[in-house]
Design a protein around this nucleic acid. Sequence first.
DNA 1: CTCAAGAGCCTTTTT
DNA 2: GGCTCTTGAG
Length: 789
Amino acid sequence: MSIYDTLNRQQLEAVQHNEGPLLILAGAGSGKTRVLTHRIAYLLDEINVNPWNILALTFTNKAAKEMRERVDTLIGFGSENIWVSTFHSTCVRILRRYIDRLGYGNNFTIYDSDDQKSLMRDIIKYFNLDPKKYKEKTFINEISSAKNSYISPEQYAMENPGDPAKKKYAKVYTEYQHRLKQSNALDFDDLLFKTVELFENNKDVLANYQNRFRYIMVDEYQDTNTVQFKLLHLLATSTNDFGETVHNLCVVGDDDQSIYRFRGANIYNILNFESSYPDTKTIRLEQNYRSTKTILDAANQVISNNTERKEKKLWTENQEGDPITYTLFDSAYEEAEYIANRILQDFEDGLCNYRDYALLYRTNAQSRILEEKLIQRNIPYRLVGAINFYQRKEIKDLLAYMRTINNGQDDISVKRIINVPKRGIGLTTIDRLMEHSIHNGISFYDACKNAEYIPGIGRGASKVSPFVSMIEIIKSKLSNPEYSILDLFDEILEATGYEDELVAENTEEAKNRIENIHELKNKIITFLENAKEDNSLNAFLEEISLVADIDNLDETDNTVTLMTLHSAKGLEYPYVYICGMEEGVFPSYMCIHSDDPMDIEEERRLCYVGITRAREKLFLTAARQRMQNGEIHFHSPSRFINEIPRYLLNQTTPKSIYSNPFANTVSAPITPQKDKPFRYTSANGSSDFSAISRTGFNRNRSSNPFGDNPMIQKGFHFEKPYQAKTTTTSMLDNPPSYGVGDKVKHDKFGEGTVTKLTKGKKDYEVCVEFDTAGAKKLLAGFAKLEKIH
DNA sequence: CTCAAGAGCCTTTTT
DNA sequence: GGCTCTTGAG
């Protein structure tokens, strides 16, 4: 019995192909991670490849971590020497060693999108551009797509000399790049761009890595952009024992799951892989091990409407399964309410665990209303994305201090903190400092050092110098090897009085911020615990600038997961809800009104991704009206609903949930009609009649905490009283009525004794020794334990 | 220089 | 609806 016996024929073929380019077209749920990990095992075990010679690239840290763990379980050794990492981390690792060849310092800072925005704002001001006419975002997007296509500022300027708009972009791009370099900073796109630049201009460095990475594997290849293609092409060229050039490049992807075009992903990388590498071996993985036949059929039908794709048909030996449920509601409130009720009911009936559910939506803004309804029912949930922890004001402030200390050239960070907390340094002073720095070609921080000699600053200088000396003092301590970044963090808190100020504020919001600061401190401690060789400030800052929201998803918690369809790629759940299936929401308004037909195709691929996340049951929901940007919008059901054959759908009427909130939905009788897609009534029959109401009839409801929910206005008060949502951690405010040693009763597990009661992250954690069910760890908020006397 | 209130903008998706 | 920026008064 070998580890390869469990693979199907195509999977095995892919695993055993070890020489020359390999394209694995892996449909959703076809076991592509299995193939990748088994292939690594095969190379190590059977071909005796040195783990040192293997590079596996992913897009998220989560995927990288999973891959490493799975290789470990397969072969039990050697995986720590395989380079398994994201594209971005890989590039950073290379650049940290060699970027001095491009004239940057090796302690460069990584700018996130907020930093980019601040920088761009400065540039717009510098060029005296009308901020009403020129948005930072327009420039940033233009620059980003140039970088993703490996177009430098010089090249950009050369390409369109006659076009005045492009000329302006070129000027801004040049200045932007100049300032990044001055700040010794790179943005996300630079990480890839500069690595390719480094390789192209330093053949010795390239040869070094080519020689090392003799076997390269790439996950989610359909989402690579042009720079990533170049990078792979440069790296995956080595010479074999016979002096022949070989490309041991194995890419795995699914063109139907390409959903990052907006971010520069180039779907032709995968579509044209075979022509880029003529001796490519192509293997299709079409057997799906994840979903029911019904779900898979629906997915196949939807995606078949796309033109630009490699023909393939997923099949499964799994059961037929239940029909897909589609429900159209009057409003987004009812939609959210229904979903929350359904989940609660199934949970209480013992039919499912909370962790079995994923609620997917097109835009992050849609999560709010779902969260509200889940909170009201005490359903624990976990939100992926939305507000990234590292984007919070207090976190960014403290990180800016650390970044300033690490790299004084990082102007954006220095400017961020120079008057935070308030030191009486105003806009005039900052402007003068900025002018001075630009005039003299020095960094903003160096200008601060010279503050007293700068004309026009006057009294301001006396405020600036204490700031400079504070930074200098802390910086000097770093030279002591005993001084850890944890000491540094404490010192910053102490010296700036940042936390004290929040404590003094004593508001709910301030408390929340303090909690976040403590959380950041925990992250530093964890980092120091896990750091292998490098526990420097630089390494810490690097690690946190490269985390994605999805990296922190803990699938062991028993919670419902809420996330965007994009974040859901690569995951699977027994029960999936896709909410907001409406024209103008999904597909988005932007795509519908775009003149590029590829936009709607990408949206359809996103729908395909969503559908194929579900293992057993898929629920699609839509609302006739929903609040967007403070306005009520009316939408017709999504075209994607129409693309699912009617015989796979079970349309339920939302009416039934009004009379009895916990009653089962009633199925409308549906006659199978294979040839005719079912069309849901829309006033004029057109697929897009979304309208926007700009009238003010959503006013005058500020006194009603339930908003314009007609159910509430009609008096159907089956909900718990509304509580203003401050954080998702509010359950900690209600300590349980029982303590250690108390006898308690649980609905399902019966009677038991509390053995432990601790304050968890979101809620109190209770350990109970049940008389019959054994020891269980529960969350107090929804375990509904009853104390018995 | 700082704070509070009002105006205006926004939303697609993210490493 | 909510966040950020602008404005005007201390």
